[in-house]
Nucleic acid binder design. Structure first.
Lengths: 182, 182
DNA sequence: CATTTTGTTCAAAAAAACTTGAACAAAAGG
DNA sequence: CCTTTTGTTCAAGTTTTTTTGAACAAAATG
């Protein structure tokens, strides 16, 4: 009676979002935002995170109600970050996507794409500042500038040391620890 | 002849930016941006970072050519982050600001203000998802949801563990190491 | 008090970031 | 080839964030 097309589980859950899924998607939306990524990237990742089966771009568009452009760009960027990977289902032309769910991978991808480039640009900037210090007419200012340059170099070195540690630490216990107690 | 008002160093450098200072300010402008802070915060911090003497708000405004509003809000936010501290020069009504230059302090302030609140909101969100899982009609979906909730909880725990380490690691060798070689 | 100096607030303007969708390519099928 | 399906690109539109500046408060000065 009321239970009509209800047990269409594995293959039909694809069409609508469960409440909890919306909440997870929303969580990732906010998370993406605070990592400086567009909201839509968060939504897309969140959706894939929820699902067991790979989704194609058009399914992502429909489920999240976002445009082709956003879906395309979002999926590409997420793959670039290593947050999503794609497969081609046998005998189907569509590319389908799944979320990378290992925190270590997510973090290291993020650092590789976001932090590492900044560190490299940092080298160039420091070099540039060093050059400008040559121009400086006032001796006092130059001395001050050299000190600041040293401080910045120190910070740069520190950051370079920190990143590998972060990757390590997050790697530990990627799997859930055995549940003890109750 | 050519050296006229030239040696007005310590107290008069205040009026203009040296080239290297502009470069440092620009560096912090970009850095702020990639930490998700407004550019003006970066500029203000950068300026103070360059200077030995504390600067008042109107000096910041003039040197950076920014509005009263930006200067006021920027300085307040930076103080909140622990990136800047203020003093009142004896017999002067103006509040004057200096940059916190110890990386450890900067990082821990940033984490305290930005990361910690997110972790706390995370707890609430996880709880909410857990509740929504109760509503879920499809058994399969619920099971899937429980799994995802477990994954998210694991991530949350990991992040909670990571932050203290970051504060530690950055703390090491805050001072420049003794220069050996050459 | 009235005045001056210093600093905050917040609505409106400006700038930046994100999203959209239509036009365009690329590849598969027939 | 021509058509269909799938996916990319990017200019224009939308939304969000940041900055501005004028009005306002607070505190010191005389």
């Amino acid at each position: 009676m009321t239970s009509f097309t209800v047990t269409a589980s594995s293959l039909e859950q694809t069409r609508v979002l469960d409440e909890w899924e919306s909440a997870v998607i929303d969580l990732f939306l906010h998370a993406a935002n605070s990592f400086g990524l567009p909201k839509s990237y968060g939504q897309i990742y969140g959706l894939l995170f929820c699902r067991d089966e790979p989704l194609a771009m058009d399914e992502v568009m429909e489920l999240l109600q976002i445009s082709k452009g956003s879906a395309s760009q979002g999926l590409r960027a997420l793959r670039q970050l290593g947050a999503v990977s794609s497969t081609y289902a046998q005998g189907d032309r569509k590319e389908r996507f799944v979320a990378e769910i290992r925190l270590r991978k997510l973090v290291s991808g993020f650092l590789r794409e976001q932090a590492d480039p900044h560190l490299e640009k940092g080298v160039a900037r420091l070099k540039q500042i060093e050059e400008l210090l040559g121009n400086t007419s006032s001796e006092n200012s130059q001395i001050r500038g050299v000190r600041r340059h040293e401080v910045l170099s120190g910070w740069h070195r520190q950051m370079g040391r920190l990143l590998p540690w972060v990757k390590m630490i997050v790697g530990k216990s990627d799997r859930l620890p055995p549940k003890n107690k109750k």
